[in-house]
């Protein structure tokens, strides 16, 4: 004899592809904005232009990924609606990219760790079983390859430069290292996407990433922080649990669009 059971109303299936697109788009929107904060303040004119260039590339990539996210979501939101009218808890970027710029060494270390992640991720995504994601990834990969050349070269120059530049970039690496595991956390979304071949297997990607990072860090005469510097707690970004820095940044990023909705210029 069976007892009557309550059939729970099934939760709507999680839209994994939407989550993936938001993660890709938000990483780039947030980091692009951070880099844009250097505009007019970089150490020299040439680097000012270079950082603004990377910022614009990332903004362009964010536009593509968020536009597609809006299409997949199917609620009529375009990339601007997603960028300007979501709250911090709805952002899916990793914590690494929202960290404030600090000094130039800190910005470069943050950029380098992200750029290597971007190259290995976009390279894998360019073979995604989703044709749309594969196309967007292939387009962004070309830019990411240049970005990592830029930030990697700076890691070498700063690490193997003066005592002061070495000390600063080493300290940045030590400080940022705890944010890197989050880049490769295989949560439910990532695991399901990997099974479907839409997104790559993250643990394998992590190993690839670390090989490249280790090589450049070694050549830059820097020391890779020990794994004990990883923090298991610093990985809330993908589910909307951000550091306080994101809210402040979004206030600046969103104020104009929110003050003048629909304004054209």
């Amino acid at each position: 004899m069976t007892s009557p059971s309550v059939v729970p109303v099934p939760a709507p299936p999680p839209n994994d592809e939407l989550e993936l697109l938001l993660r890709l788009g938000d990483d780039r929107l947030v980091l692009g904005h951070r880099l844009s904060e250097w505009c007019g303040h970089a150490p020299i004119l040439e680097e000012d232009i270079a950082l603004a260039n990377v910022a614009l590339d990332l903004l362009g990539q964010a536009t593509l990924f968020l536009r597609r996210a809006g299409e997949v979501e199917g609620k009529g939101r375009d990339e601007d609606a997603l960028a300007y009218f979501r709250e911090a808890v709805e952002f899916r970027n990793c914590l690494l990219v929202e960290q404030p710029n600090g000094d130039f060494g800190f910005t470069i270390a943050r950029q380098f760790l992200f750029d290597v992640h971007a190259v290995v991720t976009l390279d894998a995504l360019s073979r995604s079983t989703s044709a749309e994601i594969a196309a967007l990834a292939a387009k962004s990969l070309k830019e990411a390859k240049y970005h990592v050349r830029h930030s990697g070269e700076w890691m070498l120059m700063l690490g193997d430069g003066t005592d002061e530049s070495h000390r600063r970039v080493q300290r940045a690496l030590d400080e940022l290292w705890r944010f890197t595991p989050e880049l490769f956390v295989a949560d439910g979304v990532a695991a399901r996407l990997a099974v479907q071949g839409i997104a790559p297997d993250l643990p394998a990607l992590h190993a690839k990433w670390e090989t490249i990072v280790r090589d450049v860090v070694g050549r830059a005469t820097l020391t890779l922080p020990h794994e004990s510097m990883h923090s298991p707690h610093l990985r809330g970004g993908r589910s909307g649990m951000h550091s306080e820095h994101l809210g402040h940044m979004l206030a600046e990023l969103q104020i104009v669009a929110r003050s003048h909705p629909g304004a054209k210029w």
């Binding site: 904060e37 250097w38 303040h41 970089a42 150490p43 020299i44 004119l45 404030p100 710029n101 600090g102 000094d103 130039f104 800190f106 530049s165 000390r167 600063r168 300290r171 940045a172």
Partner: peptide, 24 residues
Amino acid sequence: SDRPDATTPVGEQAAAIAPDGQWP
């Protein structure tokens, strides 16, 4: 402090890193 935090004007940091004209 040794490592300026985000509140240090970046312009000041920049000037300390590479004054224009030092590089070839």
